[in-house]
Design a protein around this nucleic acid. Structure first.
Lengths: 347, 347
DNA sequence: TTGTATGCGTTATCAA
DNA sequence: TTGATAACGCATACAA
């Protein structure tokens, strides 16, 4: 392609570069006739404004970075990304998905963050950041919005699911179904990552207490500490082993996520424990796999979170304060086939 | 943040701007000592090269567009994206995910493509393009690489799964298991979208023929034409209805995708037909849901396709020809719980 | 190996 | 409403 410049368009249209610029961007006062001329000329030359040149001249990069903890092909992240793109791209922004896996990469990323002037804003998803990283974020002059980030935060705005709400609903369901011993199963949680998981654990315990489960009736089962991530199958094997070696086996389990729930169900099956006949299981997320496995679960909506975060970002970018800077999404219980009223032959 | 410029770094380091530029990018000849000085200065100022300015000066945008048909939260797309990002981002490229859904958006996108000089390359995934769109792509001077794109193509390079290979394996499995009547179930295929689906259908028929299935022993069941996309449940209901109204019910089904396979299995269940006891089902993809549902399926690896496409893009960007411009990924049969040897009481 | 000078294609300020 | 013109921050050809 011939790469036309604004100058050629100006010449063809018989106006100045400045006018072309104004006309094409739709800013400032420009006569309808002039605009038409310019647009015709631009069209004929197959001309588009150069993003690089615009950025340089205006100081706006028209880019927003979307930082994930984990991979882009994870259900949650992919949905947030889709949501963000849906609202940001029509506004002319490029979204630049980035991801870090593990502690080291995270540190490295935040270490070099302050000097990054190559984006207008940053959206960060599902991080549990240490003080040093938070500090780095604070000193950045970029608007920062968080998705599933602790509320007492260092972000200008944030959106997340209400894990407390979600776990309460799960626990109340189990209570209604007559379950007297319940457990929360969860992978080992490194203290510096994965925010939502630890919050769900706390929420489970709190909800259990509020619903009258004493300590010995509501367990938390955690995997042993490990460095390399465990396969879900291995994790489930470990968790089920711990479950089965409990003084009293619970009749219902809440899992950290759908993934873990499904892995646990498979492992239980290997031990001839059937779900939901012998034991009920509830997941968290309502990812695609939950439907495929007919899993009762607590639904969150990362797609909508992404859209919401992007809207907040847009506000910030315009120098406004978002309507509700810190928002929390209600969680929904999805009743499917892995929960059941407890057998009546127990006291 | 103070936004330092290259000039300030140069001054602090006591060298020229040009030297700073060279030192920081690691190009050209620059003395180790000088480089160290420059790096120290840059570090102290919290300086990073401005992407916009670099782009403008060099003519390279350092951006590659990744165009999807469908949403970014679909399993296939999310995986391709992850793969592409994994290899492109370490090389300093921004990947800009874009998506179009439906015919109109696609047309609009390609219509304005030729004048898009805001990327160095474009990767397009899973498109079935009409001649006009192809032409637009051809006239673009950007390197173009395809993912799951017809081979006789308008791309400089491409990678895709071998749908023929995959469907052959599926059909051969069913033959080995003694199934004598088999069917392929598929959503209505608008002739201008979804490439792989129609290819799989053809591949099924071809494989069936090669394996000795006569016409009346290998059916293709297609949904009726419709404008708005059907929910998977509705689609499955329609497909199962057609299946059940066949002169002879097949004993095994190959589905277009895992999604369709799982929806069909659920619908069959509603009709008291159990999988695999009464009928075997094979999916295609091996997405997360396939594992969750214990679905026998044909595996493709979009993550690896993404990486591969990105590597090809990199080659093209460097002016080289990729080792293998057009590659095809072998498909793998994943044997799980939805297929079974046909009951022996049939002839 | 380093420095000088020019240009990249816009935007934005100021006049007209 | 439009036109000059000076930035914007860097890469690169060329000279030293």
């Amino acid at each position: 392609m011939a790469r036309a410049t604004i100058a050629e368009v100006a010449e063809l249209a018989g106006v100045s570069q400045a006018t072309v610029s104004r006309a094409l961007r739709g800013v400032g006062k420009v006569a309808p006739k002039t605009r038409a001329k310019v647009e015709a000329a631009a069209d004929r030359l197959g001309f588009t404004l150069s993003k690089s040149a615009s950025s340089l001249a205006s100081g706006k990069t028209m880019r927003v970075v979307l930082l994930f903890s984990g991979k882009l092909n994870e259900w949650f992240n992919a949905n947030v990304l889709q949501g963000v793109c849906e609202v940001l791209e029509p506004e002319g922004y490029d979204v630049s998905p980035t991801f870090v896996t593990g502690r080291q990469e995270t540190e490295r990323y935040f270490a070099q963050l302050p000097k990054n002037r190559n984006a207008d804003a940053i959206i960060i998803s599902s991080f549990q950041l240490d003080e040093s990283a938070r500090e780095k974020l604070r000193v950045t002059d970029m608007p920062t919005v968080g998705v599933n980030i602790p509320a007492e935060s260092f972000c200008d705005a944030a959106i997340g699911v209400d894990n407390y709400d979600g776990m309460s609903k799960a626990v109340r369901l189990l209570k209604s179904l007559g379950h007297q011993r319940i457990a929360f199963v969860v992978d080992y949680i490194p203290d510096d990552m994965v925010y939502s998981t630890s919050q769900r654990m706390e929420a489970f315990l709190e909800a259990a207490e509020q619903n009258g489960y004493d300590d010995e009736y509501a367990y938390v089962i955690t995997a042993d500490e490990h460095d390399a991530p465990l396969s879900k199958a291995d994790l489930a094997a470990q968790l089920v082993a711990k479950l089965l070696s409990l003084p009293h086996m619970p009749t219902a389990i809440c899992a950290e996520t759908d993934q873990v729930a499904i892995a646990v169900i498979k492992e239980l099956g290997k031990q001839q424990l059937h779900v939901p006949e012998d034991i009920s299981v509830i997941g968290f997320d309502d990812a695609d796999i939950a439907q495929a496995a007919n899993l009762t679960t607590v639904r969150q909506n990362p797609l909508e979170m992404g859209r919401n975060a992007a809207r907040k970002t847009l506000s910030l970018l315009r120098g406004q304060t978002p309507d509700a800077s810190y928002e929390s999404q209600e969680a929904t219980l999805m009743l499917r086939d892995t929960t059941r009223r407890v057998a009546t032959d127990r006291s």
